[in-house]
Amino acid sequence: MSTDFQQAREALGARLRELRLSARGGRLTGTQLAQHLGWPHSKVYKLEGGRQTATSDDLRAWADAVGHPDAFEELDARLKGFESHIRSWRRQLAAGHRPVQDSWNVEVSRTRVIRAWEESVIPGMLQTADYARAIFLRYANLHGTTRDTDEAVRSRLRRQEWLYEAGHRFCALVWEAALHALVCSPSVLAAQLDRLAGVVGMDTVELGVIPLGASLKVPTANAFWVLDDRLVITEDWHAELWLDDADSIATYLRVWNVLRESAVFGADAQNVIHRARHALNTR
């Protein structure tokens, strides 16, 4: 998680500890507070140490238990300030694209199941080097950032090694429009589509394609990734948004499952990819 986010979580933890030590009925140990709340004692120490994100209910229970119910509004305001963390592209890309890819690699390395939705590009975990290079160059031009393209590509491709490790599962949904988008040269897109068709059937990959003519229960909207039901990463033109609160994660999982209902898989997905490949040949 980002330094800003972790510092905010640690600051909230320090405030919780302060309230515990100044409890109205006399200072409480972590074990005593845990027993009073019916929590594992480890939860108290994780919250105070900034190693776990509190929920609003956790904060209300804590404030009541230590005899400071009036502190709840302050605690909840702190929580709402960091449960969704905006990582602006201006700040993130100041040193180029490679550091951003390295941050992603850290999060992916401690994840077992990834659910991804991409509406306009091929998911990074399945990109060829040339396709990834074209994407990075497009965004470097847009944001006027450092051109560390080769380093960024190498970092993204290292992340793909995750796909070949036992116990991992990459569940990707892609809108058919992404198969036709010429964000690169036709020859690079052709090779990318061949790569995409080749991953269908991999033990660690479930690839679903939503055909352009499919009935949609929700608009396609922005791309997003859900890592192990603990973190959602989504992005817009100005920033990347990291969400780890339970409500947001549940919302994105619900959206992903609804989108999945419109997707085709296996041989049907390959047919959609092959049609896009054939259309590319006839341009």
Rank of each mutant, 00 (worst) to 15 (best):
A172E: 03
T3K: 05
D247Q: 14
R90Y: 10
L227Y: 15
A71I: 06
E165N: 05
A221C: 01
G25D: 15
E161G: 04
P99Q: 12
V200R: 02
H274D: 14
R98M: 11
P219E: 07
T3E: 12
E151W: 08
H278V: 11
A61S: 14
L253I: 13
S2C: 01
F82E: 04
S56K: 07
V272L: 05
D236S: 15
L21C: 09
L37M: 11
G213Y: 02
G50E: 05
S2D: 13
Y252H: 13
D247M: 10
P123N: 06
T204P: 00
G25W: 08
R115T: 07
G208F: 00
S155N: 08
R195T: 08
R98H: 06
L193M: 06
L79N: 01
T149C: 13
R24P: 10
G144A: 01
V209C: 01
R115I: 01
G266I: 06
R20K: 08
A239W: 11
A239G: 09
V272K: 04
D203S: 09
A214C: 00
V106W: 11
R110L: 14
L59P: 11
G81E: 06
P211D: 00
W104C: 12
R110T: 15
V188K: 10
K217I: 03
W256Y: 09
D130Y: 06
E206I: 10
N105E: 15
Q92K: 03
A94E: 12
T3N: 03
N257I: 01
A239I: 09
D130G: 10
D203T: 08
V218K: 03
Q127L: 04
L19K: 07
R17K: 13
A129P: 14
R133K: 15
L179W: 03
D70R: 10
T149G: 12
T29L: 08
A61Q: 13
W162Q: 10
R60M: 08
R20L: 08
P123H: 05
A152I: 10
E165A: 10
Q92P: 00
A263K: 00
V199D: 03
G208Q: 02
L157P: 07
V108I: 15
D247H: 14
S109E: 15
T31A: 15
A94Y: 05
R169G: 01
Q192P: 03
D150C: 11
D57N: 12
G30Q: 13
W162G: 09
E18S: 12
Q127P: 02
V232K: 09
W117K: 01
L179Q: 05
L212Y: 00
A178S: 07
R275N: 14
D130K: 10
D64Y: 06
E161R: 13
R17I: 03
G201Y: 05
A61K: 12
L196R: 02
D228T: 06
G49W: 06
R17W: 02
R51C: 07
G30E: 10
G198C: 01
T3G: 00
G96R: 07
Q7H: 01
L243T: 06
N105I: 12
A54I: 05
V174N: 01
V255Q: 11
K46Q: 15
A239R: 12
A152Y: 08
R275I: 06
L126F: 03
N281T: 15
E176I: 00
R138D: 13
G96A: 08
P123C: 04
A246M: 13
E119Q: 05
T111M: 09
R260G: 12
L21K: 14
A279M: 04
A152G: 10
W89C: 02
N281K: 14
A116M: 05
S56D: 14
T145S: 13
L207V: 04
